[in-house]
Design a protein around this nucleic acid. Structure first.
Lengths: 335, 335
DNA sequence: TCCTTGAGTGCAAACGATTGCAACCGATCG
DNA sequence: CGATCGGTTGCAATCGTTTGCACTCAAGGA
């Protein structure tokens, strides 16, 4: 907790001026090598560290990118953050992270705050209303949206159209003709996309698609158990793996065999999905890559270019033991 | 992306000086109410937003706290971050998050970088060597360690002594006399604590304790399967729930019944632990609270006080179906 | 020898905010 | 009526850094 060493201290000690020290430390070419060496030595010895605040202030460009996520504890977002963090750090930027707790109003507040500190914004699965989003985009910094398409901003998203097709084709291939979708948070754009693309594909494949509301956690999945059981579907698609795992748990607790009586599949393929009982069929997507791509778009934009075309990531279906051939007879209902 | 409005612009428009505007906006009491109202109005109309960089630079105190975590995707850390984030935000601070990827060298680099931007540091389950930690503590900002005890810093940790006792007493109550611990990352202080306290308690309870190395993920648990099976233990304690769930999965795949043939229990009780098959007996700890307490220690310290005594959080044992009475006969070994 | 040249260096002005201090005002008091 | 005083306001310095510009000085050409 010693006193801060400033440029002027180094200058005094080295017997030169602050400008010389600054230039020496920043590798300017109009300074003699000996002086550079000397100054570097003195600076090192004194333990000089540039005041980043003053530096960024003077230079005018914040080397920070603000990120909002709905929920820090959701593995999906964690991994996106991981990818984004790595990419941004490699580019000399740091991440300022805000969590909106799935609340659009809070997210708006967050954006409003982060923009004061950041040179760029990344909105991860934004729960913002359309109007809120417009407002966010009016900020004087470039914005990238992950998993939400919008004009005048960078866009990186999962290709849900392809995703839903993969899922439904897998299920129809197993003979399922009636599928139930257990949905996610109402404010989630990606839930909307999943529903939209599922409906569309279901129509094309001549599959009956039912939908119920759900949520994003294991609890939501577990709670959906009775509804699922009483539906006439032979296969269920859940909003994400946490919901899927919760649902599997309910089925086990209530003696419903998966996949012989009911197939369950899901989006995201978080690591733990491979270890559920039975292991969950799910759509693997490169979440970390979402973050990396977001950063790429941002650098291009910061470099002066226009926004590139949206990046769409196509997921890959990982078939595990939670899906199997459709049963023939109507399920025996629990009382 | 309009031009920034500065204080001087507001002053010009309002027909006063910058000092007046600054004072009006910051609620100084030596300024007339009418002027305040007028300035506020003009500022609002012009859409003025203080340049936080300049502000913090001038004021000299960074309103940012730097945090390091070994792995963003680990639910344990996510929740700690959640709690810390909420508390810090409430206190007007923001979080700058760095991920060390479980690598001590990277963590040291991270600390070195974060300290330039932050008014305080929180090291979450630091993987630093003792020397590295000393170095980090020599930084000119207060440091709080979560799950690692150290002098001259704030400390918030899980009470592993109580934790291990709860676990072992539960198992001995079920008749287990031989227990295997599947460990975590070698650089993890908390793994060391778990081992230390388990050994000690095992001795006190006259339980035979074996140990094997493991890791922190589901994969590590799954891979530990064969070793566990060939051990003579009737119960296993895993480093965390992810490892536990991975191990359960291997047991299932290899026809080992849990808990009738083998009991499995773990630390942390992450949400998904309730939905594994069978549901995992685990130690619930208030992870978000760890973050909150870290913030509390920090504010006290920033307020000029000495470091308070370490906060120790006692976990609570959540008994689920993965633990049961010890089997009598020697297990039939798989080939 | 003197002037030009260019590399190396220092002075001082920024960046945008906050704040101590002095100046100013009208009102009140002696 | 002048000095004083309390309440407002503006001037200017300041935070630590970068950088345009002017300057110095040695070398080289005329």
């Amino acid at each position: 907790m010693a006193e801060r060493v400033r440029l002027i201290d180094v200058a005094r000690e080295a017997g030169t001026s602050v400008s010389t020290v600054s230039r020496a430390l920043n590798g300017s070419d109009l300074i003699s090598p000996e002086v550079v060496a000397h100054v570097r030595a003195v600076a090192g010895q004194l333990g000089y560290r540039a005041d980043k605040r003053a530096q960024e202030f003077k230079l005018g460009r914040p080397l920070t990118v603000g990120v909002t996520v709905p929920d820090l504890t959701n593995p999906f977002f964690s991994e996106v953050l991981k990818g984004l963090n790595a990419a941004a750090r490699a580019g000399g930027y740091r991440l300022l992270i805000g969590e909106s707790s799935e609340d659009p109003a809070e997210e708006l507040r967050l954006v409003d705050e982060l923009v004061d500190y950041s040179g760029a914004l990344v909105l991860c699965s934004s729960r913002l209303t359309r109007a809120g989003l417009e407002k966010a985009l009016a900020q004087p910094v470039p914005v990238v949206c992950i998993n939400r398409t919008v004009k005048n901003a960078g866009v990186v998203a999962i290709d849900y159209r392809a995703a839903s097709r993969l899922l439904l084709e897998h299920l129809t291939g197993l003979g399922h003709r009636r599928v139930l979708y257990v949905g996610g948070p109402a404010t989630s754009w990606s839930d909307g996309e999943r529903r939209r693309t599922l409906r569309r594909t279901a129509r094309a494949l001549d599959v009956t698609l039912d939908e119920v509301d759900g949520g994003w956690s294991g609890n939501h999945g577990y709670d959906a158990g009775p509804t699922v059981l009483h539906s006439r579907a032979t296969a269920v698609i859940t909003f994400n793996d946490l919901v899927g795992i919760g649902l599997l748990s309910w089925m086990y607790d209530n003696g419903v065999e998966v996949p012989s009586e009911l197939s369950v599949a899901s989006y995201d393929d978080i690591p733990i999905a491979a270890y559920s009982r039975p292991p969950l069929t799910s759509l693997r997507n490169e979440r970390a890559k979402l973050g990396e791509l977001a950063w790429e778009q941002l650098t291009k934009r910061l470099g002066g270019a226009d926004w590139p075309a949206p990046d769409l990531l196509t997921p890959e279906l990982v078939v595990r033991a939670s899906t199997g051939p459709a049963r023939r007879r109507a399920r025996i209902r629990a009382s």
